[in-house]
């Protein structure tokens, strides 16, 4: 049984389809990166997995069950947000932020709480003396570590991290990524890492899912997917990443029209587009072990 199964998940906002037919699973202790540009539907997917947003279609199963009660779900699935300034209450101490989940989820008594808070801070590489501080006294990197410590107060099985380092300075981002990796190793916590930064997804290893126009268009081991991308969008994305070691390679195609309402979302920009792509969303096509993509061109190559 997988830790998490996402089945045919969809979400509309009015006329707009933010997410369509998203299906994937996550194993215990696995890091899966969900990569896409703004508007691709990655954050909407994250919020549905964290149960902060109800899906329009499909369902999310935790340990095989789609009917886990609210409190139990939150004690197993936690979320870390992009903005460590907005996710902490400026009027409350760091200790308060960490004590609340400990008490709410009965992980500690009021008497045990200070010790548990100190342990949490040490877990994320912060000095326990920070408990009496307020968020404004901390740097952005320290604040994001507090947000991670808060998520770990309930000893979750899965942490959904939505762009956890994109607002941090370059020199401290890697420390937070390394922290996530260490927590995975030590506690077997799974991570769903939402990012637009394909290089950081590759750095964390694990599996990678690429989202475009509401669809997950490719999935596979991060190193394989970044080395031998199968979907034309993934290839475009990788070519656009600045890479001083490789030198620039320009393959950018500008979108020529609005996003189509039927068929593959990438047709307006795709160099391989055919009439079939405009009417029918390509099925999941196997590329190699654990590596798949949704592209009609791919189906032809394999036949």
């Amino acid at each position: 049984m997988s830790l998490l199964d996402v089945e045919n998940l969809g979400r509309t906002f009015g006329e707009a389809h933010a997410v369509r037919e998203a299906s994937f699973s996550l194993e215990r202790g696995e890091i899966v990166a969900l990569v896409g540009e703004s508007g691709s539907g990655k954050s909407t997917t994250a919020r549905m997995v964290a149960r902060l947003l109800a899906p329009t279609t499909g369902r999310v199963l935790l340990e095989g069950s789609a009917t886990v009660p609210e409190l139990a779900y939150r004690s197993k699935v936690q979320m870390v947000f992009q903005d460590p300034f907005g996710s902490l209450n400026p009027a409350r101490t760091i200790g308060h932020h960490l004590t609340r989940p400990l008490l709410l989820h009965r992980r500690a008594t009021r008497k045990q709480a200070p010790q548990a808070v100190a342990a949490l801070l040490e877990t994320v590489g912060l000095d326990p003396s920070l408990a009496v501080r307020h968020p404004h006294e901390l740097s952005g990197g320290q604040r994001q570590r507090v947000a991670i410590a808060r998520a770990f107060a309930v000893e979750p099985l899965l942490v959904v991290a939505d762009e956890p380092v994109s607002m941090l300075d370059v020199s401290i981002r890697i420390g937070v990524l390394n922290l996530m990796e260490r927590l995975r190793d030590e506690r077997e916590t799974a991570f769903l890492y939402i990012t637009h930064d394909v290089a950081s997804a590759r750095y964390l290893g694990g599996r990678m899912l690429v989202m475009y126009g509401g669809h997950i268009v490719e999935g596979g081991p991060a190193r394989v997917l970044t080395g031998e991308p199968a979907h034309p969008y993934t290839r475009l994305l990788l070519a656009a990443v600045p890479n001083p070691r490789r030198g620039s390679s320009s393959t950018v195609t500008r979108p020529t029209g609005p996003r189509p309402s039927t068929g593959c979302p990438f047709t307006a920009r795709c160099p391989l587009v055919t009439d079939l792509c405009r009417t029918t969303m390509p099925p999941v096509t196997r590329v190699a072990d654990g590596h798949w993509a949704r592209c009609h061109a791919l189906g032809k190559e394999n036949q």
Partner: peptide, 22 residues
């Protein structure tokens, strides 16, 4: 330190450290 702070799209999996402190 800055150059050793961002992962590259084609590195061979070396561990990066960033820069300690602020």
């Amino acid at each position: 330190g800055l150059l050793a702070s961002f992962p590259s799209i084609d590195d061979d999996g070396e561990r990066l450290t960033g820069i300690p402190g602020s």
